[in-house]
Amino acid sequence: MNIFRLVGDLSHLLAILLLLWKIWKTRSCAGVSGKSQIMFGLVYITRYLDLFTNFISIYNTTMKAIFIAVAIATIYLIYFKFKATYDSNHDTFRMEFLIVPVGGLAFLVNHDFTALEILWTFSIYLESVAILPQLFMISKTGEAETITSHYLFALGSYRALYIVNWVYRYYFEGFFDLIAIVAGCVQTILYCDFFYLYVTKVMHGKKLSLPA
């Protein structure tokens, strides 16, 4: 565990708690893509199946359990409790366009041809693109609420910090996982445009809106 990974994990935790808190507090999930949240739920569930087979640390187990629980709670709020506020007209990204190719790729490119390993690989690939429905929704409506922007910024920061973590681990531990690194870089690149808008708008107290 190095500082970059720790801060990255905390940023990840902050992001998902922030989104859950926003939905709960405002009693509304307007502007939030339920599809991105379903895919993140799928990511955590398929990746953390090793909770049952592989103990790493109390920290690791606790974080995994929290991620799964928060993801399920968020999906529940969007699709059940506050369903009336869910903006499904703008959440039109087709999940199968991501899940099917990503599933195929996980079968073809993985470290080990076992069920658990393929599911882990699937979750890594899926996480790299799971935010697309959310970004697509923002590009459709042309704006995002400020808390949603903070959520995306915290989530993107987690990804960027993980890259620094991998550089650190490569140099100091000789460790690298090419699948995680390539997928992680793809994922981080997807946030770049958003980061730019966040820094130029949200940090200056403006709402995030896209140029017409």
């Binding site: 990974r5 994990d9 990840h12 990746r47 090793d50 592989n54 790493i56 690791n60 974080m63 995994k64 991620f67 470290h111 080990d112 076992t114 390993e117 882990w120 993980y162 973590n165 996982d177 995680a180």
Partner: peptide
Amino acid sequence: HAHGHKHDEL
């Protein structure tokens, strides 16, 4: 990578 690839990151 050997069998039982260990994933210690989140």
